[in-house]
Simulated assay, not measured.
Amino acid sequence: MSKANPHNTPQHPWYILGAGAIGSLWATYGFQSGADIRLILRDQKAVNDYLQHGGIHLSIEGKALICTAPAECPSSLATPIKYLLITTKAQQTLDALNSIKPHISDHAVLLLLQNGLGIVEHIRQAFPLATILQGSTTEGCYRQSAYEFVHAGHGHTYIGNASQDHLQDDTRLTEIANTLSFPPLAISISDNIDEILWRKLAVNCAINPMTVIYNCRNGELLTNPKSRNHMTEVVNEIINVSTAMNRDHWLTGLHELVIDVATSTAQNRSSMLQDVQAGRRTEIDAITGYLCQLAKKYGVDVPINQQILSEINRISALDKC
Rank of each mutant, 00 (worst) to 15 (best):
R228S: 09
S188I: 01
A186E: 15
S227K: 00
Q164D: 15
D194I: 10
I159N: 10
H230C: 02
I213T: 02
L167N: 13
L185I: 15
L173P: 12
N218F: 03
T157L: 08
T171H: 15
R217V: 12
D191I: 07
N208L: 00
A186I: 15
L173R: 11
L180W: 04
V234W: 01
F182G: 04
D194Y: 06
H154E: 15
G153N: 05
V150A: 13
L221C: 13
L180K: 08
C205G: 00
C205K: 01
S190F: 05
S181C: 08
S190E: 00
D165W: 05
I193G: 12
Y214E: 00
D165F: 07
S181A: 07
R199W: 02
E233I: 00
S188F: 05
W198T: 00
I213G: 00
K200M: 04
Y214K: 02
T157P: 08
G153E: 06
R217E: 14
S163D: 12
Q168G: 11
C205E: 01
L180S: 05
A177S: 09
D169W: 02
I193W: 09
V234R: 02
V150P: 10
I176F: 09
L180H: 11
N218A: 06
N229S: 08
C205H: 03
V203D: 07
L185N: 12
Y214Q: 00
R228W: 02
E220D: 10
D169N: 06
D194L: 07
G155F: 15
T211I: 06
S227R: 05
L222C: 05
T171D: 14
G219V: 02
M210C: 14
K200D: 01
I196Q: 15
N178K: 06
I207Y: 01
C216Q: 08
T174V: 12
T157V: 12
E195G: 12
L197P: 04
L197C: 09
T179I: 00
R228E: 14
L221E: 01
W198A: 00
E148F: 04
I159A: 00
R217T: 09
T179L: 01
T157A: 08
C216N: 04
N161R: 13
N218Y: 06
V212P: 06
D170I: 09
T232N: 13
P184H: 07
E233L: 06
N215P: 00
A162S: 10
E233C: 06
V150F: 08
T171Q: 15
T179H: 14
L185A: 02
T232Y: 07
T211W: 05
P225W: 01
E220M: 13
K226Y: 03
S190K: 05
K200T: 03
P183V: 13
D165Y: 04
S188A: 09
T157K: 10
N192A: 14
W198E: 03
C205A: 11
N218K: 02
R217W: 04
P225G: 09
N229C: 14
N204C: 02
V203Y: 03
A162Y: 12
L197T: 04
P184K: 11
